[in-house]
Simulated scan of single mutants.
Amino acid sequence: VLVHMRIFVLLLSLIFSPALFGESTGWSTYISEHGWATVSDTREGKGSLSEAIALVPDDVWLKHFRTFPSVGDVKIQNELHDFLASKYPELHNEALASAGNMHNPKLVALRAAFQEALMSTSLVTRINASLKSRCERITSASFEKFTIRNSGNQPTYSAMVWFSTKKCT
């Protein structure tokens, strides 16, 4: 409940923030008055993530990244599918054979594996490479509204994904 409340407050602050910028990059950047920032996928095409990160001053902790994997993210979709199919074949097959809605018990059973899959994607590798000079790195993934849609040859994994960072020690 606390995690959901934090995300709700973060979403509200993103909506009403005067310090929101970077939309032309395909990512928007929000800088909180509390010394941290969030970079969010605008869902209008994948622009330059490195440009959005560069908009955050070095003394501001880039604490969160928010993205929405979609059918258009072919590389990420393939990475998620390959990870789940190879590392969790039974749970994955059961989830695929059932209704892909977020409350389905077969999909609920796949949530922890989905978090692992998210952390293994090239997006996390790319973000971490961009964060290296800032001495920050992604350390966890969380998500809301995880669904799997079966359309065509391969399922589409969908969620509102949050990657959280820590500063290097």
Rank of each mutant, 00 (worst) to 15 (best):
E90P: 00
G100I: 00
P89L: 07
Q115Y: 11
A112F: 09
T139G: 15
R137H: 15
N101Q: 12
Q154G: 06
V161D: 05
M160H: 03
A113C: 14
M102D: 14
K132D: 15
A159Y: 02
E136H: 14
A129L: 09
K106I: 01
S122P: 01
K87N: 13
L131N: 05
E116F: 04
A117E: 07
A95Q: 12
R126I: 04
L110Y: 02
A99P: 03
S98L: 05
E144I: 00
G100K: 04
S133W: 10
A109S: 14
P89T: 00
L131P: 03
S158Y: 06
S122I: 08
R126C: 11
T156R: 06
L110E: 05
A109K: 10
A129M: 04
F146V: 01
P155M: 01
F114R: 00
V108I: 10
A117R: 09
L96S: 02
S151F: 11
S130P: 01
A141P: 06
L96Q: 08
E94Q: 12
S130W: 06
K106P: 05
R111V: 09
P89A: 06
S133G: 13
I148T: 06
E94N: 12
N101E: 14
L91S: 03
Y157A: 02
N150I: 09
L91R: 03
N104K: 01
A99D: 13
F114W: 08
R149Q: 10
A113G: 13
V108G: 03
A159D: 02
K132Y: 15
N93W: 10
H103N: 09
G152H: 13
K132S: 14
A117K: 03
Y88Q: 06
Q115I: 08
S151W: 05
K87H: 14
S140E: 15
P155W: 02
A99L: 06
L131W: 12
R149K: 14
Y157D: 02
A113Y: 02
K106S: 13
Y88T: 01
L118N: 08
A141C: 11
L110M: 10
R126T: 13
C135S: 15
N104A: 13
N104F: 04
I148M: 12
N128S: 14
A99N: 11
Q115K: 14
R137Y: 15
S133C: 12
T147A: 08
T139A: 15
R149M: 07
S140N: 15
S158L: 04
T139Y: 14
N150E: 11
S122A: 12
